[in-house]
Nucleic acid binder design. Structure first.
Lengths: 338, 338
DNA sequence: CTGAAAGCGCTAACAA
DNA sequence: TTGTTAGCGCTTTCAG
């Protein structure tokens, strides 16, 4: 059995309360001798307080949970780093969970974390558990990241998708593109995806370009699926007025599109240009380096964490939910031609 | 305040014990009517048991902790996915931590997880906290992944680095290379790195090639550092008998080397070939696609988790620590020429 | 088949 | 400055 506070108390010849006070840094009004004695006994016994017992009593765990949509996505890992660093600095622990873009897994994790009594939660939500999230938020502060759910008033940090898409389309038009298709993952429930599609349509309109339903490709990232779509759109059999540029709504789809184009032997940007939303570490190593709209992901992670901390430390609990929007930025590389 | 077992008991007109039994699935010898009543009350109140209280009593949390070396490394994320899936299937929760290759952070996380009473731990260790790990392992089963620490008998899953390196060097020699340099991160305390260096030397010897101290480059992944090293080794000012091939000991260093070579305008494989240990998702998208030694990372994650679970479920606690070694595999792409 | 009671390891009034 | 006491919410003998 592991050593308890009672044992420490016994050996130092004081009561549990006194040891407890020592543990909680209340030495101000404590005899220097007793303090030293306790310190010594703790060191001797290598005593470590039982966090579970402490949390049970205090109803605080000094831990926050984060649920990311897909840990294989560099977008998620960068955000995690941002969250982690800010949390660590504030003395909070982090429990990380990967929902794997699966609403059922997300639900389980939200429940698990709530059950474990985390003090707060940061979620990159699938958008399919809004009721649960709203409910948990009533007793455990939550910050949403990347994806918004306006219906349930919750702190949110996100990126200005409309601005990003506008920069993307403007750039392509500037380079002479008039026929621009868009690839996106299915966007039910996922706010940035929907916003990007709408912004794409708006941007086309602003440039006097027609929106074509058949050039807005909703697809998964399965290779076979992408192959089919791309072949139909820009493959050998495609019509003459096929698109000259493809705008991809996030990095997962960008990677797939680039991969498949290469496989199909369609050269970028000679035969078709590619521009992706989201930057990532090695986007510049690809052949050709991909032009992207970059989000300040690390900073977004920082911000989400600091918003949460602020709420956790707030005395008056009911400040209005805030939404912080970050500005994305065009990074010109080679995939759209000069 | 949230609803407790006492409240459920009161409303269903039974005792706490009975509710507790219900919660723990001991309905075998329970009146069908009481059971139904409890079920109904729980549903009505949306009661969720307090995990902290339960764990405090049971001394089991049904949770395992995993500490990875660097979450930005695709190697880590794939392993995580492997761990996650196996754990989930067995009904365990996962708490993920990122040591960021920092021994101090690793120490803090090991302590935190031990304090949180996780049932077991999976660690991709920095190799600098062996005493602590050995000590924790006495009461909390640990499985080491990737990096071994033979001194402290602990379950380990790793890859056969010697075999991997041999395949790498054999392949390069087969393609005509006689002057092969090696890039590695500093390898103090990190077993695979050391093993790979030794295997590199052995493989050279087997092929009758000389080992040159100045061709074994120990470096960080800072771009400036890599630039300096590469310029000296194969840059314009380099001697005539410069290496024709570079073997990189892991994917982090491979990425950096590839990135810098491109930046320096040194073409691969025309001017110098590159072969890396570790595969990753987009290695084939780089220009040129990188030839690598691939590790079965996902399977390694699975295995680590299942070894841990086995130990957690073991009745007789003291089975000898086992080490499982996976076989890596050469994947030929374009970075070593035809 | 069900209940009473003790206790997991800690904290926090309240007393002294 | 320190000790006593009563729980936090749950599980688990032991009785019945």
């Amino acid at each position: 059995m592991s050593v308890t506070i009672a044992e420490v108390a016994r050996r130092s010849g004081v009561s549990k309360s006194t040891v407890s006070r020592y543990l909680n840094g209340l030495y101000d009004h404590m005899g220097a001798d007793t303090r030293d004695r306790i310190a010594q006994v703790i060191a001797e016994l290598d005593y470590r307080p039982n966090t579970l017992a402490r949390s049970l009593k205090q109803k605080r765990t000094h831990t926050v949970g984060a649920i990311v949509a897909n840990i294989l996505n560099p977008f998620s890992t960068s955000i995690i780093r941002g969250i982690e660093d800010t949390l660590q600095e504030a003395g909070f622990n982090l429990i990380l969970c990967n929902a794997d873009d699966d609403p059922a897994k997300e639900r389980d994790y939200v429940n698990m974390l709530a059950d474990k009594q985390v003090d707060g939660l940061i979620i990159n939500t699938t958008g399919c558990n809004n009721d649960l999230i709203a409910q948990v938020n009533q007793h455990t502060p939550i910050v949403l990241i990347d994806r918004k759910v306006p219906e349930i008033g919750i702190d949110t940090v996100t990126v200005d998708s409309a601005s990003g898409v506008r920069q993307a389309i403007d750039h392509m038009v500037r380079l002479g593109h008039r026929r621009i298709a868009m690839f996106t993952l299915p966007y039910d429930h996922v706010s940035p995806r929907l916003e990007r599609v709408q912004a794409y349509q708006a941007a086309l309109a602003d440039h006097g370009l027609p929106f074509r339903e058949d050039w807005l490709i909703r697809t998964g990232i399965e290779e076979t699926e992408i192959i089919a779509k791309l072949q139909e759109l820009v493959g050998v059999g495609a019509r003459d007025d096929k698109p000259t540029g493809i705008f991809c709504a996030n990095n997962l789809i960008t990677m797939s599109v680039v991969r498949v184009l290469k496989k199909l032997g369609i050269t970028v940007p000679a035969e078709v240009s590619v521009l992706g939303f989201d930057d990532w570490d090695w986007a510049e190593l690809i052949d050709p380096p991909v032009t992207v709209i970059a989000q300040p992901v690390y900073a977004m992670g920082n911000k989400a964490a600091s918003m949460l901390i602020k709420r956790l430390k707030a005395v008056r609990p009911s400040q209005k939910p805030a939404t912080v929007m970050f500005e994305p930025e065009l990074i010109k590389r080679k995939s759209c031609g000069e």
